[in-house]
Write a protein that binds this DNA or RNA. Sequence first.
DNA 1: GCTTGACCCTGAAGTCGCTAGAGGGTTTAT
DNA 2: ATAAACCCTCTAGCGACTTCAGGGTCAAGC
Lengths: 154, 154
Amino acid sequence: MRIGELAKATGIDVETLRYYERVGLVQRPARQANGYRAYGQDAIERANFIRHCRTLDMGLGDIKRLLDFTSKPDADCFDVNHLLDEHLVRVRAKLKSLRTLEKQLARLRTQCDAGHRAADCGILQDLVAAAHGEACACHPSDGNSSLSKRKARE
Amino acid sequence: MRIGELAKATGIDVETLRYYERVGLVQRPARQANGYRAYGQDAIERANFIRHCRTLDMGLGDIKRLLDFTSKPDADCFDVNHLLDEHLVRVRAKLKSLRTLEKQLARLRTQCDAGHRAADCGILQDLVAAAHGEACACHPSDGNSSLSKRKARE
DNA sequence: GCTTGACCCTGAAGTCGCTAGAGGGTTTAT
DNA sequence: ATAAACCCTCTAGCGACTTCAGGGTCAAGC
Ligand SMILES: [Zn+2]
Ligand SMILES: [Zn+2]
Ligand SMILES: [Zn+2]
Ligand SMILES: [Zn+2]
């Protein structure tokens, strides 16, 4: 099987497959006499595994670790659970912040409905006022910089 | 005001401020005799505006456009509304996909609770089965590659 | 006077997960 | 024979930073 066929079979772009090979996610396949990559059927399995994990938004490093587990049947799967737990934490944190964000943006959007002068635009006024520190949680405005420190630790 | 003070006043990292200057988001400040950047009070306003918009997850290009509006009071604010609408669409799309993702991951996590052999791990088995094409929507498994084409158009 | 440490400077490279381009070679169909 | 469709490598670009290397500047304490 050539790379284009593997791409069609898995829905992964040819360039992406070559990229996965470069970073070690996909093993280097044998080559034909002309230098073309020659994949076996197992490459479809592996590529589909990667694709599925990517749709679950896992990082390539995590996917590599999971792939390694599939070839070590006697290993303890604790790390698999842990990896998934951490990923869930990340996803839930992002979900939470996106929900807040959506509310903020929806409210902001109501501040202007028709076209008028920029000076009278409720949205711009709202943004400027927030930057000024009025009723806004995003910048500390007191002396401490806990927010940036927290971000740095994440 | 030196860059470290501006950083502390706004909660934006020093390196990030220099990066914003490089990409034209923050105007180049005057310099002291020793080459240090010397900011005025207005720099705090502008930097806080940027920070606030970043917590609303706007791109630097959008923020620049908004900043430009704040100095053009007579412009029509239509583009401001439009920019916000597009951003809301993006945020809501991401929110929707994250909600689906969270459900999938939460279900997957239930497949294994205690440590055992990787070969018996319900999570790994689930992932392999999904990659195999069982009850999984992420890869087409039929002949067409509509999914990848759709993605390319987006 | 001299070192220590906290600042500041520039420019370049690394991060992640691709994506696109340049500049070729090979195969297949007409 | 020629064109389209495929394949190859190597390189650079995206966004929004972060980090590193290799310096310069300045106040305080000994
Ligand atoms: Zn799948
Ligand atoms: Zn408006
Ligand atoms: Zn704010
Ligand atoms: Zn398990």
